[in-house]
Simulated scan of single mutants.
Amino acid sequence: MTINVHPYSQAGFATGTSEFYDQVRPSYPAECLSYIRGQVPESTAPLNIVEIGAGTGIFTRALLTHPDWATSIGTLKAIEPSDGMRDFWTKSVKDNRCTIINGTFDDTGVEDGWADLIIIAQAFHWCLDYGKAFTEFARILNKDGAAVFVWNLADREAAGWVAQVQHCIEARGNGSPRFRLDVLRQAFSTAEYTSLFRSQEEKQWAHHGVASEKTITDRAQSWSYITMLPPDEKAKVVDDIKCILERGDGRVWINKEQGMYQDPHMARAFISRKK
């Protein structure tokens, strides 16, 4: 198998970064997982699921512990090209229905027509060739199958400080792909997508967690291209974010004495059904 991985992903998520990534990245709202389950007929359970770009297992674990999915999963095959993330996934996902192998969007190693559902959470912006990916998705999905693309992003519309922090981070992106660049809508316009899949369905959920200064600065340092910065530049990013948080434009306090406030996010799910 030839594994082609975006160089920023390969370098930014190298061995030694996975545990930190898993600790600081947020999980997904329960409503989003319920919605995804509702898109697959009950009659098809237990489901054969392929999760591509499974990373450290943040979405996998959320799926396994969600009540709507408790008895719905037959077999879950996770695909992840990062050695470090696969190792962490293996340690963090303890369910004999689930396995993980090395692979990519266009080379999953899954047999023809096996999958009821493909799930890609917080990962499809790393795809190198949309046409090849959709061809692979259509190959491994059964005739009634669907692909689900999920993102859980900081909600920059909810508060000024969120938008400012995101701008501070993305200013160091140097062309790294991200959902905000609308890569998925570009993917949906490819000839392979329009010939193999129906028009996508979309839903989103505003939600918030609890954050502190450490939460936000640690999360910023988990971004692929931030991990690659020299120590002095990385420290400058942290200092700039601390200044933004000190101003706290639009911040909603949960416990001011403890320095805890709302951490606004917007989760989005896109459903693409095979023709």
Rank of each mutant, 00 (worst) to 15 (best):
W89E: 02
G38P: 06
R247D: 14
I101F: 04
T99W: 03
F197K: 03
T44H: 10
K94M: 09
W89G: 12
R97S: 13
A11K: 13
W151A: 05
I244S: 10
C98A: 15
D83W: 07
E257D: 11
R185M: 08
Q204M: 02
E157G: 03
F134H: 05
L128G: 10
A62S: 15
A187G: 12
E246V: 04
L184K: 00
E157V: 03
A45R: 13
R172M: 12
I79R: 01
F88Q: 14
A206M: 00
T56G: 12
D112A: 09
V40Q: 05
N102C: 12
K275H: 07
D263K: 01
D112P: 00
G57E: 04
L64F: 11
R178D: 09
I119S: 11
C168V: 08
Q10P: 05
I118M: 11
D182C: 06
E80F: 12
R86E: 06
Q10K: 03
T190P: 08
A115F: 00
R185K: 12
Y130M: 00
A220N: 01
A123K: 09
R156T: 14
D240M: 08
K91P: 14
P29L: 11
Q166E: 09
S224T: 15
A187H: 02
L128I: 08
E170V: 15
D182G: 15
I254Q: 03
C243T: 13
I244C: 06
A267F: 03
E246C: 08
S82V: 08
F20A: 15
D107G: 05
D116H: 11
L47M: 15
H125I: 03
S34H: 05
V237Q: 05
A187E: 02
E201D: 10
G131A: 09
A220M: 07
I119D: 04
Q204F: 06
Y21P: 08
F137A: 10
K256D: 01
D107C: 09
D232E: 14
I226V: 15
G160W: 07
G55P: 14
G145H: 09
C98H: 09
A11L: 06
A154E: 01
E80T: 06
Y193F: 13
C127L: 04
V252G: 07
G113H: 02
E213W: 01
Y193G: 07
T217N: 01
A154F: 04
D95Y: 13
R180T: 10
R180E: 13
F149L: 10
I244M: 05
D112T: 09
V162T: 03
F124S: 13
